[in-house]
Amino acid sequence: MLLHIAPAAEWSAPDPEVPYRPASLATEGFVHCSPDEDTALAIADAHYRSVPGPLLLLMFDEALLTAEVRWEGSGDRLFPHVYGPVDRAAVVGVREIRRDAAGRVTGLAPWV
């Protein structure tokens, strides 16, 4: 399971058949992912505090992705990067990242 943080407005699409293409795909050539929930929440807490609106934690089934996944180093850790758009059929779960008024992560909740 690969985990990806996305603003809810970025995840929403008018057509569910349209692959997900976050901004990083155009600017960096890949979709940033995390290997586990704790890492994803730490990244959300460190880098997404000022992002307005709901934040989502998308769960990708790596076996259902048609784009290449590479595990690449950042510091002393490896992170999964998806080198292409994400097939929406590969998204097997979505949860909301709960934050307090200052934008600090407080936990996860079901996304409705």
Results as ranks from 00 to 15, higher is better:
Met1Leu: 12
Leu3Trp: 06
Leu3Glu: 06
Ile5Lys: 08
Pro7Leu: 02
Pro7Ala: 15
Pro7Asp: 02
Ala8Met: 07
Ala9Trp: 13
Ser12Cys: 04
Ala13Ile: 05
Ala13Gln: 13
Asp15His: 12
Asp15Thr: 08
Pro16Lys: 14
Val18Leu: 14
Val18Ile: 12
Pro19Phe: 09
Pro19Gln: 10
Pro22Trp: 09
Ala23Cys: 04
Leu25Val: 10
Thr27Tyr: 04
Thr27Pro: 02
Thr27Val: 10
Glu28Asp: 13
Glu28Pro: 00
Glu28Gly: 07
Gly29Cys: 09
Gly29Leu: 10
Val31Arg: 10
His32Arg: 14
Cys33Pro: 13
Cys33Ala: 13
Ser34Arg: 05
Pro35Ala: 15
Asp36Ser: 12
Glu37Ser: 04
Glu37Gly: 02
Thr39Cys: 07
Leu41Lys: 04
Ala44Phe: 03
Ala46Ser: 15
Tyr48Pro: 00
Arg49Tyr: 01
Arg49Pro: 00
Ser50Tyr: 02
Pro52Tyr: 00
Gly53Cys: 08
Pro54Phe: 01
Leu55Thr: 01
Leu57Met: 11
Leu58Asn: 01
Leu58Ser: 04
Met59Leu: 11
Phe60Met: 15
Ala63Met: 05
Leu65Lys: 12
Leu65Pro: 11
Leu65Phe: 08
Thr66Gly: 13
Thr66Lys: 11
Glu68Tyr: 04
Glu68Gln: 14
Glu68His: 07
Val69Thr: 15
Trp71Arg: 15
Glu72Trp: 00
Arg77Pro: 00
Pro80Trp: 03
Tyr83Cys: 04
Tyr83Gln: 05
Gly84Cys: 11
Val86Arg: 02
Arg88Gly: 04
Arg88Ile: 06
Val91Trp: 04
Val91Asp: 05
Val92Met: 09
Val92Leu: 06
Glu96Thr: 02
Arg99Ser: 02
Ala101Val: 04
Ala101Thr: 05
Arg104Ala: 03
Val105Phe: 02
Val105Thr: 06
Leu108Thr: 08
Ala109Trp: 09
Ala109Phe: 05
Trp111Tyr: 13
